[in-house]
């Protein structure tokens, strides 16, 4: 058997073993490879960065536990960013089994809030899951508190400070006569989807299309999306049509967001293994094609 046949007939278990090692070694000995920023991720980051302090932001955690390794890093990075900017964070999920009925969002927002020293009900709230998909989005657009009378923990939403807004002690322009007219983002009440300054939909399924179709088109809420790598190419037409401001695609997107937030989290650490495996896969594709063409050529020469 020639070397070409040997390459073609290599036992797939050998490949699995190499993949395992390529994943495991960079986890044990991090390579700290550089992360380059892309416009798509900046599209989400800049929107959040430019929000005034106290602006309400909606984060839809529409993914299943099975997608957590890929999507949790970006959810954490976005939450860190929101809490750093002192935004009012509202999390929810509209996908039936995704987000385990809101428990993924609850766990992540709770952990990140604890790090940032934020208070539930004042700085953040998790609404949990509500059945109805597009009907929920429309309901939130018409009357937010009627659609979600209670949060994930059973607290009455109407009584929470986060939705009713708080007045600040004044701002730098308070001496001017038009100061009373300048809107304080913290004082903004949340009665509808329209009242949110921005939303990020983190999804492993097509829930972003529901948010675009009903949230953006009907109620004009600005949307950024974070998604599994599988879903990323499908979001580009919406980006081109300016229905979304940016895309955070998979672990790569998460690592970029972590870089923007100046820390190396699970995303950046995972990218070490990703990069090694990508090189390995490129080599395999190259070898596979090379051997295929050599064999084809041999066949034609013989034929």
């Amino acid at each position: 058997m020639g070397i070409i046949q040997k390459v073609l007939n290599v036992d797939r278990r050998v490949i699995y073993l190499i993949v395992f090692l390529a994943v495991a070694i960079p986890i044990i000995f991090p390579l700290n490879l550089p992360v380059t920023l892309t416009e798509e991720v900046m599209g989400v980051y800049n929107e959040i960065e430019n929000l005034p302090e106290g602006s309400p932001i909606l984060i839809a955690v529409d993914y299943e536990p099975s997608s957590s390794p890929e999507l949790n890093p970006m959810t954490r990075a976005i939450l860190k960013h929101c809490f750093k900017k002192n935004l009012r964070v509202v999390t929810t999920t509209i996908w039936p089994t995704d987000g385990s009925g809101g428990s993924i969002a609850d766990k992540l927002v709770e952990e990140e809030a604890r790090i940032a020293g934020k208070i539930r009900g004042k700085d953040f709230v998790n609404l949990g899951f509500k059945t109805g998909s597009y009907a929920v989005v429309i309901g939130m657009g018409e009357d937010f508190k009627k659609t979600f009378p209670k949060d994930f923990n059973g607290n009455v939403l109407d009584k929470l400070e986060i939705l009713n807004g708080t007045h600040s002690n004044g701002n730098s322009e308070s001496s001017l006569p038009n100061a009373a007219f300048s809107q304080d983002a913290r004082a903004k009440k949340i009665n509808s989807l329209k009242d949110f300054s921005y939303m990020v939909c983190i999804h492993d399924d097509s829930s972003v299309f529901t948010w675009i179709t009903y949230g953006y088109e009907r109620y004009g809420i600005k949307i950024g999306t974070g998604c599994t790598a599988v879903m990323a190419p499908g979001n580009y037409p919406s980006l081109q049509a300016k229905q979304i401001t940016g895309i955070i695609g998979g672990l790569k997107g998460a690592s970029e967001y972590e870089k923007l937030m100046n820390y190396r989290g699970e995303g950046a650490r995972g990218m070490d293994s990703q990069s090694v495996i990508h090189v390995f896969i490129i080599i395999l594709i190259f070898l596979g094609n090379l051997t295929y063409f050599i064999l084809e050529r041999k066949k034609t020469v013989r034929g």
Binding site: V19, F20, V23, I27, S66, S67, S68, P69, E70, T228, A229, V230, G250, L251, K252, G270, S273, Q274, I277, H278, I281
Partner: peptide, 10 residues
Amino acid sequence: VMGRVSLVIG
């Protein structure tokens, strides 16, 4: 491929 590898990494 990137997405699936992410799951293995997890």
